[in-house]
Amino acid sequence: MNPILVVDGVTKKYGGLTAVNNISFDVTPGEILSVIGPNGAGKSTLFKLISSFVPTTSGQVLFKGERISNLTPHVVARKGVVRTFQETTIFRSMTVRENIVVSHHLRSKASLLGFFLGTSVAREDEKTFGQSADDIIEFLGLQSIGDELASNLPQGHLRALGMAIGLATNPAVLLLDEPFAGMNHDETMHMVTLVKRLRDERNVTVLLVEHDMPAVMKISDRIVVINFGEKIAEGAPAEIQSNEKVIEAYLGSEDDAIGL
């Protein structure tokens, strides 16, 4: 199968610091691929390069054969590659449902003027968005907090809402930056199931960065490991667990081992 996403020798330099150094890998459609590595390895930067939040210093990212690096985030999102953030980001003074409804923007058929005038296309859009938001709320099990103000939510729910916002854009590729951070074991396992269902039922290709190794091992089809901005390994979970370089990278860092 043709890869849906190709990361082709991307490099990002911040002054003298090379945050991402010549990283390449392919992502197959419908795959769940995790990017792991010690703190400061360059994982979030890699996601920012893929979603065009920052320009690459060199190299490129292709989505379905088309270059998406060095564009702007909203253009890349429009093409179908959407990221969530490591720092939980939500629209604080909106309710959970409003957060999800507003994030359907990319699916609008009506123009902004159409929405202002309240044309039938616009009203149709709003109806569709409302229904789809309810679907997403149900999918993620957020029914009980639909009318809750986002700023009042605990960490676990915030992460879920972040994912809901990403889902609302109807992405082909969803980049999740530490989606399980701040969740307890049960919550994490529940989310792992949901991410898998996302792939199975909604055909979303998922890239995720995560420090929770048991979850990564459980969820991933493949894993890419980076350290000091460079890719040091790539393969199935079992291969990664026994990879010398990976074990060394993790033991050499403050992170306690890879959780084997």
Partner: peptide
């Protein structure tokens, strides 16, 4: 009032609350 109560206003609010997230859901901020 119409602006605020239509999608245009909702997107303005998203901009006010989080410009980066707004861009990532595809809004031409």
């Amino acid at each position: 009032w119409r602006i605020v109560n239509s999608r245009l206003g909702h997107l303005c609010r998203s901009l006010q609350q989080n410009e980066e997230l707004s861009a990532s859901i595809g809004v031409n901020t």
